[in-house]
């Protein structure tokens, strides 16, 4: 077939996806240790938001330090839908994807007029505003104390809450990965990549750059919303501190630990950032310091992402 290579990206993505599905299924069946299971669940949940951020940062080249806020919007939307509107879980989940997506589009249009460090500042401020609102708008969020409490136990047919959330998160992660892979492998992704290098070039080939940027911001927000809603479902109680500025920075860390060039890096990064602090007991004290130094080192020596640079290094070693 003449174009076999043009579709190789898709095939390659399909294989990784299959591998991921099998890996998550095996873990889901074999992991009996509650603690290990919870680490995997948290990793999967954060990976969804990190994939969204990769689309925005890695592909479109638009930095956001406010991704955690959209996770928060998703979490509160899900909680509100279930507790105050008594909607069933699937409906709440869909609402928690649509609302941040819509909000992302509305905010994205003006805020993406900014670029570079101004965009970083603007989104950081956005995240900070969200935190203040979440901690003060007590009628909806419950503030810092008590926050949201007593979300339903999702266990049914003898399956525990943790097990149900595990499989739900795995499915949402896989769907998110499929959608993201299709977006970046398709013409939308190509348009974004051209846009990252030059908005003029993208516009001159027919890309509506303003719309494309707002759309990718909205999509990233929707991914974050799904992630935040799952986190809310899993934790069953949370408050504004769960979605502070540090969450946005952890999501950034996940992306740069993985890769800025492929969505799979975000999954790797999410697992790394969630697992490491939990494995190293004394790590908690030094967590911020280690994060900071890691970020500095990665940006100095591997600015397209640590995972990606290591992978390239290994490949070039093995081929020579």
């Amino acid at each position: 077939m003449r174009n076999s290579k043009s579709t190789s990206n898709l095939r390659h993505d399909g294989l990784i996806l299959l591998g991921l599905a099998i890996f998550l299924a095996i873990l889901g069946v074999t992991l009996s240790n509650q603690f290990h299971r919870s680490i995997v669940v948290l990793s999967m949940i954060h990976a969804i938001a990190a994939i969204g951020l990769t689309l925005l940062m890695g592909y479109a080249g638009q930095v956001s330090i406010g991704q955690g806020a959209f996770m928060g919007v998703g979490a509160y939307a899900a909680a509100f839908a279930m507790q105050q509107l008594s909607l069933p879980v699937p409906v709440a989940l869909i609402g928690a994807i649509l609302l941040p997506g819509l909000l992302g589009y509305v905010i994205g249009r003006p805020i993406l007029r900014l670029s570079g460090h101004n965009l970083a500042l603007g989104t950081l401020a956005l995240g900070a505003v969200f935190f203040v609102v979440a901690s003060q708008w007590r009628s909806v969020t419950g503030g810092i104390d008590p926050g949201i409490v007593n979300l339903p136990n999702l266990g049914f047919w003898g399956q525990s809450h943790e097990t149900v959330v595990y499989w739900l998160s795995a499915v949402v992660l896989l769907v998110a990965a499929i959608v993201a892979a299709a977006l970046v492998d398709g013409r939308f992704g190509r348009g974004l990549e051209v846009l990252r290098t030059s908005e003029v070039v993208a516009a001159c080939m027919g890309v509506d750059t303003v719309r494309a940027k707002s759309m990718v911001f909205a999509i990233a927000a929707a991914f974050a919303g799904a992630s935040g809603a799952l986190l809310a479902l899993y934790l069953r109680s949370f408050n504004a501190n769960t979605f502070g500025v540090s969450l946005s920075i952890e999501l950034l860390m996940m992306v740069i630990i993985g890769s800025l060039s492929t969505i799979w890096g975000a999954i790797f990064g999410a697992f790394a950032i969630i697992i490491l602090p939990n494995l190293l007991e004394s790590f908690d004290h030094a967590k911020l310091l280690v994060y900071g130094l890691t970020m500095v080192a990665v940006m100095m020596f591997a600015p397209r992402g640590l995972g990606e640079t290591l992978l390239r290094f290994v490949r070039s070693r093995s081929s020579s």
């Binding site: 043009s6 898709l10 299709a182 977006l183 398709g186 013409r187």
Partner: peptide, 11 residues
Amino acid sequence: PWTIITENEEM
């Protein structure tokens, strides 16, 4: 998402 397969081939 699968619609991109045929579209990519065309492109």
